[in-house]
Design a protein around this nucleic acid. Structure first.
Lengths: 355, 355
DNA sequence: CGCGTTTCTGTAACCGTTTTCCGGAACAGT
DNA sequence: ACTGTTCCGGAAAACGGTTACAGAAACGCG
């Protein structure tokens, strides 16, 4: 066979079920049956087969197995990057739940590039993933939206599922499971907490129109102001992305422009809170003595900072995504859309202020 | 066909290459060739095929393809958990490099359980991963060591590779690639930094005998003391695991036992540094004014803390692992063993002390 | 117009499993 | 001893692609 010629340098071939069968003196069918477990086999035969398997160190070829009709089930997760703590936690949840349900976990990252995300989804489709879980923010232009909903349909057509985590639904008739958390609610709670402590001028750090997460949190912030009848000042909303150094930059610039015109800070997330905190410290402003502060995410930095923040059920999001996708796959019907609750974790970054 | 009966509830079937061929009025061979790219085909035929593909929204079955001899290459990574920043960074490196080399990335977590780790390796072997990358600490008992080196041989036999990241080799004749970073060297540098600043009594927080990472760093610490002819006091080595709350606990207990008998702290990693920092603060001890401090890892918390720490090339470890495994797979020979360098990042947690 | 080339396209074998369908052996009952 | 069950194990047909081989159509040329 010429086909055999192109083998990896050092290697014997991977042993096949046929070789096991020969060595055990039985047919391939018997080996297959014995290995797949529950099948009546004479103890002697079973022993012979098992010995052959051990001696050859045989493991089944997952591809052949999948092809023949016993697919090794798998779940795919696609995210921007795995180093962002939030994504990492979600991924952990996905992985945990997938393992619990006996599924392998495929992972791919996109670096935030919609193009690569689309490619990943296609890739996962080829791999017969039972569910493709998309996590995180993207700017959703129309072309992207269209192609993604096409993929949703394609996946649905073959009994698989597209799952959107922490991003808005694609549309009413797109068959995708959606797992969100309550950004607006959390922001409302955090802002109310500051307001109740007597703060009126609350800086919102991390505005970013078009990004659904940021938008949701901004909405909650504004609603809380409204509910407390505190006038809303657009000048208190600072724009920037969701990173540590951006938080640092935003606060630096703000303070460089003049003395603080706020008594409290709402940070879009804990990373930003970290940077902001640093910038404040460099200007001799202490938290919470001089400035109160709340964050969002409840990820590691908040522990170091003693930051009062909004807890997000990161891992729960991942677990729920897998669970819903898998049970929905079995049941069929309209795909579920759940919103997970968030709650405030009070630490030590807010001080009451009385007029 | 009875086989067809057990279909997922809602779904049409996944379309096959045969259906594409029929619709385009050509043979399957032609479709296969056209899709696999570089093959001379009449423009008209190609167009017809492409249209059929689009209309049926066909994607190839990766399993069938793999079976037939064009395996979709993949690389597997197995780690304790993806939420630990260090692992996450390594994973990111692996994923990046894998993508760059056109490989899919399979991921599995073990929760630190050797049993699950072994199961994962087997699983990955079934999936025909070109390399299986193991990251992180384990307590290596003999049974574990033996089975793992058996897997290494099994993988090697079929032209795949076992890669160990940040853990010690299994033995001289075990065909596994090893990528380490220089724990001892980094610890030496960090400790020397403290010693040069005039500190003599340096608390080592996070001793954990048997864990290679901890052991390596402790070695570096002791060597530095030696080199500076500072007597080594075992009472200055505190035991604990590598987490934030452990750092907190260790320092809390130390301070509860009596006034500080040290002027500087060497933390096994940045997480511990975070907890330690907090505990110090609660006792009114400021860093670096009252106590100097160095960490290890250069992960996010160190930014917030302004921590002087040892930088580890996390992502580089992951990338190197993939690169080495893949080129070694091609070349054959003795598997490489590399140690990546580390260096000190000076921030603002160490203050000179003069007698 | 016949023939050798060149270009495409079809046929069929094969990849390594699972599973259906069947046949033979052992064993008990009469 | 003959038949009916029960138990085991084998042969062979899928699964959905790739590719070696060969055949047909188109083309240039003497």
């Amino acid at each position: 066979m010429a086909r055999r010629a192109a083998e990896p340098a050092g290697g014997r071939r991977r042993s096949t079920i046929r070789e096991v069968a020969d060595r055990a003196g039985v047919s391939v069918a018997t080996v297959s049956r014995i290995l797949s477990g529950s099948y009546p086999a004479a103890p002697a035969t079973r022993a012979r087969v098992m010995r052959a398997v051990k001696e050859l160190d045989y493991v089944a070829n997952a591809h052949a197995r999948a092809l023949a009709g016993t697919p090794s089930k798998s779940v795919a997760i696609v995210l921007n990057s795995v180093i962002s703590p939030h994504y990492a936690h979600v991924a952990q949840g996905v992985e945990t739940q997938a393992a619990a349900e006996g599924r392998l976990c495929l992972i791919g990252t996109t670096g935030g590039d919609p193009e690569r995300e689309l490619a990943m989804v296609k890739f996962m489709r080829e791999q017969h993933a039972e569910a493709v879980i998309l996590v995180g923010n993207v700017v959703a232009d129309d072309r992207y939206r269209e192609r993604m909903s096409q993929y949703a349909h394609a996946l649905a057509a073959i009994g698989s599922r597209l799952v959107l985590c922490g991003r808005p639904p694609l549309g009413p008739d797109v068959p995708a499971v959606v797992v969100e958390y309550d950004n607006a609610g959390g922001a409302f709670a955090a802002t109310s907490h500051l307001l109740s402590a007597g703060h009126q001028r609350i800086l919102f750090v991390g505005r970013r129109p078009g990004y659904t997460t940021a938008d949701g949190r901004l909405t909650g912030y504004r609603r809380a102001l409204d509910a407390h009848r505190v006038p809303h000042d657009p000048a208190l909303e600072v724009e920037g992305t969701m990173e540590w150094h951006e938080g640092y930059r935003m606060m630096k610039e703000r303070l460089a422009a003049g003395p603080p015109d706020f008594t409290a800070v709402f940070c879009l997330n804990d990373l930003i809170a970290g940077g902001t905190h640093k910038a404040l410290a460099e200007h001799g402003l202490r938290v919470p003595d001089d400035v109160s502060m709340v964050g969002f995410d409840d990820l590691p930095p908040s522990l170091d900072l003693g930051l009062t923040t909004v807890h997000l059920p990161h891992e729960e999001v991942g677990r729920t995504a897998v669970r819903l996708a898998l049970e929905h796959e079995a049941r069929g019907g309209t795909p579920p859309h759940v919103t997970l609750g968030t709650h405030l974790v009070v630490r030590d970054s807010v001080r009451p202020r009385f007029r």
